Computed example of a mutant assay.
Amino acid sequence: MDTVTPRALTPRERGALEALIGWGTTNDGPVTSADRARWLTQAAGTWAGDACGCGTCPTIELTDAAGATPRSA
C-alpha cells in the first residue's frame, strides 16, 4: 500500500460517492440495505487521494485521512 497526501472530498465528490453507494449495483450479487449503511458509515472517513494520471478526467482514488490507498496493477 502506498501513501499519498490526502485532501477532503469536495461537496460534488462526496455527493457522487453517496449516490454510488445509494444506487450502485455489483456483479457479485445483491447489495443489501446493511451493505449500503456500512458503506455510508465508512464514507464519512473517506478522503481524496491521487488523481488519474491521464490529466483530463475527474477520476480520483479514494483514501483514508492517513493517505493509505490500495494500489492495483
Rank of each mutant, 00 (worst) to 15 (best):
T63C: 07
A19R: 12
T5L: 05
C54L: 06
G53D: 04
R14S: 09
G15T: 15
T10E: 00
T26L: 02
D2N: 13
A73G: 11
A43T: 02
R71S: 02
T46L: 11
G15F: 12
T41F: 03
A66C: 09
T32K: 01
A48Y: 02
I21W: 09
A19M: 04
R38P: 01
A48E: 01
E13Q: 14
A16P: 06
I60W: 01
T46Y: 05
R71K: 09
P58E: 04
W47P: 02
G22P: 08
R7E: 04
W23K: 14
G22D: 11
P58W: 06
A66L: 14
T63M: 05
G53I: 14
R7T: 15
T26G: 06
T26Y: 02
G49Q: 04
L20W: 15
T69Y: 05
E18N: 10
A48W: 00
W39P: 01
T63G: 08
L20I: 13
P30F: 09
E61H: 10
C54H: 06
T69R: 13
A8V: 14
C54I: 11
L40C: 02
T56I: 10
A51N: 07
S72D: 00
W23A: 07
A44N: 12
T5D: 03
G29V: 01
G45D: 13
E61I: 00
A51Y: 01
L9D: 13
G67H: 13
R14I: 13
T41G: 05
T32M: 02
T69H: 09
D64V: 09
G49L: 01
T10R: 05
A73D: 05
L20S: 08
G45S: 13
W47Y: 10
L40V: 05
E13T: 11
V31P: 00
R38E: 09
A44W: 12
W47A: 00
C57T: 08
I21R: 10
A34Q: 11
A34T: 13
C57A: 06
A51H: 03
G67E: 10
Q42D: 13
E18M: 08
G24Q: 10
G24P: 13
A65D: 00
T3A: 03
T25S: 08
P58R: 11
G29M: 05
A43C: 02
S72L: 07
G24D: 09
T5N: 07
M1K: 15
A68Y: 09
L40D: 03
W47H: 04
R71D: 00
T3S: 04
M1R: 14
D2S: 14
T69C: 10
G22N: 05
I21A: 01
D35A: 01
T41C: 01
A65Q: 04
T63S: 15
D2I: 15
D64Q: 07
C57M: 11
G67Y: 12
T32E: 00
W47S: 01
